[in-house]
Design a protein around this nucleic acid. Structure first.
Length: 467
RNA sequence: GACCCCUUCGUCUAGCGGUUAGGACACGUCCCUUUCACGGAUGCGACAGGAGUUCGAUUCUCCUAGGGGUCGCCA
């Protein structure tokens, strides 16, 4: 199998089987450099996040460099707020960059708005080569070579484009600012990119980029065009759609970054291993661009939440509290005892899939003026003997000198037995009294956590309400 | 309109000429159970259509259909 492409002393096999066997050892000998190049016009989009993710995986897998380059050439649409939001989203996902904003590097600046001198110099090269011309309007156009161009793509294979009949491409506006295709290529040359993982929406324009690389006498990077993420109905996912914005849909909705990271990896790539819940380290080790799918995938919020539930349940009590603390406080509850709070949230971890669901499950641990659900009050008042049973339980609780889940459990069972009912008849009544809810952790767990005194007070209060 | 990519259960996918077409999510049923869940078991459910190559096509080729993308002085 001949090498289809030579670049910086690097050979790439197009044959996927050969490529696969070579992959592991291959990249130890080269310095891979990849980048994520967002345009700060809005929130970090899941599609963009996954593009960043694959670039990051490749860099970490090969021991290469992951660069963040902000493509803010469109002054009218770019905002500082959007740029910060994108950095925030990337950090949340754990996609740390080796070069870029806040990280520095030898190929900066990493904001295209600060690189005009470089672009001017590159345009001069094109002028010297007679590959550009200026229109009456002042816009500068690049003369296409108008020869067939083949893109050697790690995901799509060899994609051939016939000699184009499109009008020459504008590379500089009359006001002197530059167009995406031009700056993108110039920066990939200047920043010495070896590979480019980007959305498949760029595939159709890649021949233009290669034409530019050729005009500059530079060798194009190896491309890998990854499939797009679509809405559940198969339409293109845009900014307004559910699950599209990282901060709004995940960070603020109670997702764990590891879960989103894991789900996004598997949307368009299937690691060669058993199981789907994989650690960041495992994903890095397993990553192979030759295995990236070439068909678009629909986003499935259900499955993303399932992953979140899996990661949630694997957390320790302390970790879970640390993750959901902000949501509990945001809901208006005050945590005074971390140990109790940790145990409380841990007791409901198997009942939720999102951190945002937790406050509604544990609010009564943090306040004594909790509300009673409508049907709870109805059930409590339904039978006169309910009050008798609650009193019996309270009497049993009062005599306990050791307050643990086990002793509480025993006291409940004894109270039930004394009144010739099954524990299962008394349990719901106590749950209603202690939490105001019809569902929740084990009654003995609730009682133990809120303490003996509060347990007795809550039963008294409830008895007063049901008369 | 032209060009490019894609097409296995509802969704994400395994499969790389011969399989009872496997798994995960979702959904149904059963078990477990003080509630809600978790968990366990089980069921439902797919090769877009048509030619061709072949002893044999989900798998290879072509055509059609459908989906997506690109053709900007957006990125």
């Amino acid at each position: 199998m001949p090498c289809s492409q030579w670049g910086r002393g690097i050979c790439f096999f197009q044959d996927s089987a050969h490529y696969y066997t070579q992959f592991t050892t291959f990249y130890f000998f080269i310095m891979t450099r990849v980048r994520f190049a967002p345009s700060p016009t809005g929130d970090l989009h899941v599609g963009g996040a996954r593009t960043a993710l694959f670039n990051w995986l490749f860099a970490r897998k090969t021991g290469g460099t992951f660069i963040l380059r902000v493509e803010d050439t469109d002054g009218a649409r770019n905002t500082e707020e959007a740029a910060q939001g994108i950095l925030k989203g990337l950090r949340w996902l754990g996609l740390d960059w080796d070069e870029g904003p806040d990280a520095g590097g030898n190929y900066g600046p990493y904001f295209q708005s600060q690189r005009k001198a470089i672009y001017d110099a590159y345009l001069a090269k094109l002028e010297a080569a007679g590959r550009v011309y200026t229109e009456d309007s002042g816009a500068v156009r690049f003369k296409f070579s108008r020869t067939p161009i083949t893109v050697h793509d790690l995901v799509c294979g060899d994609v051939m484009f016939a000699a184009t009949e499109e009008p020459d491409m504008t590379v500089r506006r009359p006001d002197g600012s530059y167009i995406f295709h031009f700056v993108n290529v110039v920066d990939d040359i200047e920043m010495k990119m070896t590979h480019v993982f980007r959305g498949e929406d760029h595939l159709s324009n890649t021949w233009k980029h290669i034409d530019l690389f050729n005009a500059f006498g530079a060798i194009p990077p190896t491309y890998a065009h990854i499939p797009l993420i679509l809405n559940p109905d198969g339409t293109k996912m845009s900014k307004r759609d559910e699950g599209s914005a990282v901060e709004k849909s995940y960070m603020n909705e109670g997702f764990l970054p590891e879960a989103v990271f894991n789900y996004l990896c598997l949307l368009g790539w299937t690691p060669r291993t058993e199981g789907e819940k994989l650690t960041r380290e495992a994903l890095v080790n397993l990553f192979d661009p030759a295995e990236i799918h070439n068909a678009n995938a629909r986003f499935d919020m259900h499955k993303c939440q399932w992953f979140n539930a899996q990661y949630l349940r694997a957390l320790s009590a302390e970790e879970l509290l640390a993750s959901c603390r902000r949501f509990i406080e945001k809901a208006g509850y005050t945590i005074t005892d971390d140990a109790v709070a940790a145990a409380a949230v841990y007791s409901v971890k198997e009942k939720v899939s999102l951190l945002t669901e937790i406050p509604a499950w544990v609010h009564y641990f943090f306040r004594s003026d909790y509300p009673y659900e409508d049907d709870v009050m109805i059930k409590l008042k339904a039978k006169p003997e309910n009050a008798t049973l609650l009193k019996a339980a309270a009497d049993g609780f009062r005599t306990l000198t050791d307050w643990s889940e086990a002793t509480v459990q025993t006291a409940i069972e004894e109270a039930a037995k004394a009144h010739s009912v099954k524990p299962g008849a008394l349990m719901p009544l106590l749950r209603f009294a202690l939490s105001g809810q019809s569902r929740g952790p084990g009654v003995n767990t609730i009682a133990h956590l809120i303490g003996q005194e509060s347990t007795l007070q809550r039963i008294e209060h409830t008895l007063g309400l049901i008369g």
